[in-house]
Design a protein around this nucleic acid. Structure first.
Lengths: 104, 104
DNA sequence: ATTATGAGAAACCAATTGGTTGCGTGTATA
DNA sequence: TATACACGCAACCAATTGGTTTCTCATAAT
């Protein structure tokens, strides 16, 4: 069972779930309305998101509201950070080059 | 064939490949030395990375050097951005709360 | 010219994934 | 109290994944 954040956000349905609950917490049934698949399929996705702590649950009677834990996304952001520095420095280099060309 | 960047970086071996070639371009054989699996397995990972444009190839005789295209990682960075705003604003709220507590 | 080497392609395999249906349980509602 | 509903869980299934071995084709070295 590889339940890390990278694997969790690899699936487009799970990314859509995260976006939906980022607006406000939702129940599995409410979420399932937004997809073509069954509630059970959606619940399986939610389970993965909960296991890697991208999502937390709040019980309310027989309903369960799933909340987003945006902080957990930092794991991905931190991994990307060095690469961001690369693409930004390459842009800076291009910028310097263009500057030099102007002067000539 | 779902070859998007999210799916590409979901695999730990592929993430390691990206980190390795971020230092300098490498051939499949050189890359395979860093893993327990065969060159063919590594080549399959590279293929996926090339298909989603995270990696580009440079031919040199019978060798192929694989280069990182860090810019492509922006797709992920852009998707995370709204979530970053959320976790940062939550931190700001906590900060305000702590400030209020101090004053009392 | 012959041999060795680097690499992609194909065939194959076990494990994982994303989906389904059916079931049990706890909580509302009539 | 009886019925309806919201869920999670388990069993099952087809497709995909990550890996292997074998083969072929270029390019380099002898």
């Amino acid at each position: 069972m590889r339940r890390d954040v990278f694997q969790a956000i690899a699936d487009p349905t799970r990314r859509a779930i995260l976006t939906l609950i980022s607006v406000h917490a939702m129940t599995p049934n409410a979420l399932a309305d937004h997809f073509d698949s069954t509630r059970q399929a959606v619940s399986k996705h939610i389970k993965i998101l909960v296991e890697c702590e991208l999502v937390s649950q709040e019980y309310s009677g027989r309903e369960i509201y799933y909340h987003l834990n945006p902080k957990k996304m930092k794991v991905v952001a931190d991994w990307i950070e060095p690469f961001r520095k690369m693409w930004e420095s390459r842009f800076a280099k291009l910028d310097t080059l263009l500057e030099k060309m102007k002067k000539k």
